[in-house]
């Protein structure tokens, strides 16, 4: 039986929440020690920007959505990812991590991702983003956010992430259902999809942007004390959910990313020595100046619950 996207859209509409639903001044902020604050500030900044990039990813998916309902779902997901970034900013402000109320500066890998989205985000083949986003989300959901909630005892943080995780669960389930839908086409359609991945823009996106972006965050978080097994479990989830879908199994890109997920978690794999580490190093030398001015969606973040 095919998946009911209409029902999912209705659920998404029913489950909307707002930053104003949360009392950002509730007690608990004092549980954040000076040490944890210093450790968490750069991590939170990365998290905010990855959510924001994810939001842009959904905006690109909305342009390519196979049906009008899925397009509307992506519209909501685009907004929700932005909401998550805003909520995380509000947490940062609560913990005194925003200097003079300023939005943290993205790192160079995030800036490269922004550049890629600005230049040809809307032209990337649907299948590449549709497969990449769930991988990002299981990693974010299963490893990074879990790490954060384990480290931070502020009850408000847990409340916020209950909301976020409930949204993310829907994102992941729709992501995989869309893959299932894309995999349901005939063999010629799948061949075309596979060839589309060879599009140089996809390859550049993967190798120059995705690989170093993920590896940098991965290493930073592991250095901060994330158990690598948790990362492995998160990535295994990508494999597990994908394995449930008969048609997803037929997608070449799913298998490619599944293998990549395995390589990312295994620090001893040659992938790190020959590809990821050099890419992190090379990109760190890229001067942000040459990337030019990003488009105005980048300025859309705000920790404010209310706009008047």
């Amino acid at each position: 039986m095919s998946y009911d996207f209409e029902a999912m859209l209705q659920t998404i509409k029913d489950k909307q929440w707002c930053l104003a639903d949360i009392d950002w001044d509730a007690p608990g902020a004092e549980t954040m020690s000076e040490e944890t604050r210093a450790k968490m500030a750069p991590f939170m900044a990365d998290l905010v920007w990855i959510e924001h990039i994810g939001a842009r990813g959904f905006a690109a998916l909305a342009k390519k959505a196979p049906t009008a309902t899925i397009r509307e779902i992506y519209h909501y997901f685009h907004a929700e990812e932005q909401k998550h970034a805003n909520a995380e900013l509000a947490l940062m402000r609560r913990w005194g991590m925003l200097e003079n109320g300023e939005i943290p500066e993205p790192n160079i890998n995030v800036k490269l991702a922004i550049k890629v989205f600005d230049s040809y985000g809307d032209d990337l083949p649907l299948i590449s983003l549709a497969a990449l986003i769930p991988l990002l989300e299981v990693a974010l959901d299963g490893a990074l956010v879990k790490f954060l909630t384990d480290e931070v005892s502020d009850p408000l943080c847990h409340e916020v992430f209950r909301h976020i995780n409930s949204d993310e669960a829907r994102h992941i389930s729709v992501d995989f259902e869309v893959l299932e839908l894309l995999g349901a086409g005939g063999s010629i359609q799948r061949l075309v999809q596979t060839l589309a991945i060879l599009d140089p823009r996809v390859l550049v996106g993967l190798i120059v942007v995705f690989v170093p972006l993920i590896n940098k965050v991965r290493d930073d978080v592991v250095a901060m004390g994330l158990d690598e097994r948790k990362l492995m479990n998160a990535m295994r989830r990508f494999e597990k959910i994908g394995a449930r879908g008969q048609n997803t199994q037929k997608l070449f890109i799913y298998h490619l990313l599944r293998l990549m997920a395995g390589m990312i978690t295994d620090r001893k794999h040659p992938y790190h020595r020959f590809l990821a580490d050099p890419m992190v190093r090379i990109t760190s030398y890229v001067p942000a100046r040459i990337l030019g001015k990003p488009q105005s969606w980048v300025d859309g973040l705000s920790p404010e619950a209310v706009a008047s």
Partner: peptide, 22 residues
């Protein structure tokens, strides 16, 4: 361009989590 989802006491709430007061 976010979808609006509720009208509340002071304005409109949209899916980006912001309450736009009007």
């Amino acid at each position: 361009h976010w979808p609006a989802y509720a009208i509340v006491e002071k304005g409109v709430r949209a899916a980006d989590g912001v309450e736009y007061q009007v």
